[in-house]
Amino acid sequence: MKLLCVDSSSETASVAVIEDNKILSELTYNDKKQHSVILMTLIDAAIKNSGNKISDIDGFVVSKGPGSFTGLRIGMATVKALAHGSNKPYASISTLDALAYSIPEFNGIICPLFDALRDNVYTALYKKSNDGLLTIHDHDAIEISKLIEILNELGEPVLFLGDDSLKFKDKLSEVKLGVFASPFNNLVRASSLGFMALERFKNSNFDNIDEDAPLYIRVSQAEREYINKHGKSVYEK
């Protein structure tokens, strides 16, 4: 099964074509340009580099967040359009799950994170086991000081990863057993999204299996300001 995989959750854009357990092509672009400008070019190049055409793709995978509000919407809209236009299935995978999945082995807690502004981070905590990736703390938007407190209470080795982990390096150094991933592991790889999605496709007979909205965890600043002003969400009548 060939899958086209897209991540646009951060400043970096990543696109991959995988087939079963092989990466046929993968492109990562980290130049802070608008995803709306470069994403389709990356998709076209990734498909051509894999030796395929869009008609050869059996399904699509996209990161659903957390991450950049705008980037997530662009990626989700692009993949949904490709899936619906070709009548092929698609799946959406957590960005944090994909980051943790990309770590081959670590005997401790895996802590991917993204900057959620105002000393908050989007994060979840994981462990590797014989059964795969286990979530020990679900997706959350949390103050960095509270995260440090939780990790020190757990008292296990911790691996921090994600580009934004470096923004908080001084504070995260307060975690007694904390270490930081290599730059290679700090980027969300589109291929990781695809490999995580393969079993979902196989177990759902290729139906569209995740049509949820992007996983924002919390509402955007604009929506918070609207709620404070009007006392209700923009989606409430």
Rank of each mutant, 00 (worst) to 15 (best):
S50E: 08
L99C: 11
L42N: 01
L39N: 00
D58E: 08
F60K: 00
S55I: 13
N107Y: 12
I74C: 11
K22D: 09
L72N: 11
D97S: 06
N30W: 00
K33Y: 01
K53I: 08
P66L: 07
A45T: 03
Q34C: 00
I103M: 11
K64D: 11
H84W: 10
Y90W: 14
E26L: 08
I57A: 08
H35Y: 05
N21F: 04
P66G: 11
M76F: 11
M40N: 07
I43E: 00
K48N: 07
L42D: 02
D97R: 02
V37H: 08
A83F: 07
I103C: 10
V62M: 08
H84M: 08
S86T: 14
I57M: 06
L72T: 13
S36T: 13
L82F: 14
D97G: 01
F106M: 09
I74G: 13
V61Q: 06
M40V: 02
E105V: 14
I47C: 05
S55R: 09
Q34D: 01
H35G: 08
S50N: 04
Y101I: 03
H35A: 07
T28R: 13
K80I: 14
D44E: 15
K88N: 12
I93Q: 09
N52W: 00
Q34M: 03
S25L: 02
I93W: 04
M76P: 04
A100R: 07
G51S: 09
A83W: 03
S86W: 05
G75F: 12
S55P: 00
N21H: 13
K53D: 15
L39H: 01
D97Y: 03
E105C: 12
L24R: 13
A98S: 13
E26S: 14
D44K: 14
G65Y: 10
A81V: 12
G51I: 08
A77T: 10
K80R: 15
A77C: 09
T41K: 12
V62S: 07
K80N: 11
L42H: 03
T95R: 02
V62A: 11
T78H: 09
L99E: 11
N107Q: 15
D31F: 01
P89I: 02
N87A: 09
A45D: 06
G71I: 15
Q34E: 00
E26M: 09
D56G: 03
R73D: 14
A83H: 03
I23P: 05
L72H: 07
K64Q: 14
M76V: 15
S94M: 10
A98Q: 06
P89Q: 03
T70Q: 04
G75M: 10
S25A: 14
T28A: 01
G108K: 12
L96F: 07
K33I: 12
I103N: 05
L24M: 14
K33F: 01
R73T: 11
S86E: 12
S102I: 01
V79K: 07
F106K: 10
K53P: 00
T95C: 08
S68N: 12
N49F: 00
E105W: 10
T41Y: 01
G71K: 10
N52I: 00
K32E: 06
N30Q: 07
P66N: 07
K64I: 13
N21Y: 07
D56T: 04
V61R: 06
A45I: 00
T41E: 14
Y101L: 05
L99S: 08
G108E: 10
I103G: 08
T95Q: 05
K88Q: 12
A46K: 03
K53H: 12
T78S: 14
E26G: 05
V61G: 04
Q34T: 06
